[in-house]
Design a protein around this nucleic acid. Sequence first.
DNA 1: ATATTTATGGAATAAATATTCTATATTTAT
DNA 2: ATAAATATAGAATATTTATTCCATAAATAT
Lengths: 277, 277
Amino acid sequence: MKAALTAPHQPDELQALIAQQYSALSKRLRQIARYALDNPNDMALQTIAVIAEQAGVQPSALIRFAKAFGYSGFSEMQRVFQTKLVQRSNSYSERIRLYWEDGAEPPKTRSTEVLHEFTSAGAQALEQLHEAISAVQLEQAVELLTAARSVSLIGMRRSFPVAVYFAYALNRINCDARLLDNTGGMLSQQLHALSEQDVLLAISFQPYAGETADVVLQAVERNVPVIVLTDSPLSPIAEHADVCFEIKDAEVRGFRSLAATMCLAQALAVSLALRVE
Amino acid sequence: MKAALTAPHQPDELQALIAQQYSALSKRLRQIARYALDNPNDMALQTIAVIAEQAGVQPSALIRFAKAFGYSGFSEMQRVFQTKLVQRSNSYSERIRLYWEDGAEPPKTRSTEVLHEFTSAGAQALEQLHEAISAVQLEQAVELLTAARSVSLIGMRRSFPVAVYFAYALNRINCDARLLDNTGGMLSQQLHALSEQDVLLAISFQPYAGETADVVLQAVERNVPVIVLTDSPLSPIAEHADVCFEIKDAEVRGFRSLAATMCLAQALAVSLALRVE
DNA sequence: ATATTTATGGAATAAATATTCTATATTTAT
DNA sequence: ATAAATATAGAATATTTATTCCATAAATAT
């Protein structure tokens, strides 16, 4: 058989190509094609020897198979199967790595390309947010917020715009939201007024601001319920949270996006509004 | 450090154990713990050498890490990370299957539904942003910003968080950004200092805030270049802009998302940084 | 301050894994 | 039916990848 000129880098394309070429393949290669379509996970994760055994063929047949579809060898094809596993998932690094390897021009300077990087990374972060956040967490958070007399918000630096937006959104739905912005150094006074009947909503990402952690600690001491938006279970404020949302926002060129975080803020506010009404 | 007696076979257990043991680990091992929790996909798919490189440690450290958690070596631990990927992809396809069969996914609460609406609307808005913004506009805006001595930012209510974020991002790239937040009613004084060598960046969406329009008018009178982020060419500030970005952000349940606007802000800031450097 | 324990980096080694190669089998064309 | 072309199995080899080991560095206890 002659080698196909194509060598898809997208799992879906490869899958389609295998199905399409199926009848043109030799007996052994058809056997492999069937196995590959039925067990894409094994194709992604197992060694050539294991796959060969399970599919009932020789290892070399798998290499012939890969070459028939235009790859340099089995390993190259396997990477495509791996992306399938990753695509629904949360690591940008793998995707970015493949993106560059796919022959896309390296560092881009033109603004449209920067914009494109941000929009696609943002879209992906949103997609992953939707999968990562559990209904239980959301319900708990909304529950706490519903019961709260007032909601205090804290977020420093990059997290500050999120806190600002949160305050705006909560106020819009007639919720008593207080932004702890430390204007005039009144932070400790504002804190002092917090009680068990209130809620503290803290937002903090790497590099975690010390002030935010301090505020959370003080709130915990005073038995104030705490909702946390952060990026890792290792975050200094995660352990003290009553409800902790772990958000993996996209990072592009050293700038971490806020798309997912803002989106969650919005969803929380609207959920609260629906609950209260 | 002594080896933990445990050696979880379930990804979730492993993740929890890593987070729990974190503070008891040595410096290098903590570094790896962090990387592992942040990039579980890489842990599942990459070779020891690649992971070591990305995490900034020696390959042998990864093996010590695996052994510290009771595994015989790195490979054994990696299999647990791989399980996670497989489980994930199974549950995803399972959900899809159920979706088509039942017409709806089972575990849907009001909040998850709302979240879903926001994530998908946001993703769509990002996609459309990428198509709607022209290279010319971006270049012009970056041009103006590059030339500017300082950048003043104004945005009210819903636009305020964007202005706040913009100010943060611009400051991070060593650009002199001034947020016109009208603290202490000093807005007119701040305005007075604006000259032709500066830039005003105004953000305004329906219902357009009067203050923003006023500020833009005063800036125009004084020949200050103006960049505008708004939602319609009919916006009261659009006509006075030197560069006007028209952003159609998603609206869900009466709440307009900020995903696209924030994304553009970020892209502008990074483009500026690249240009300046 | 000094000794003792523990952790680390990096080269050396072992193990595994992929790939190539060739004699043999199978298919296809005449 | 025979020759030519193509595909296959399986061993041999090359390559990649994981692991071990030890000298050195850092931390901890004395």
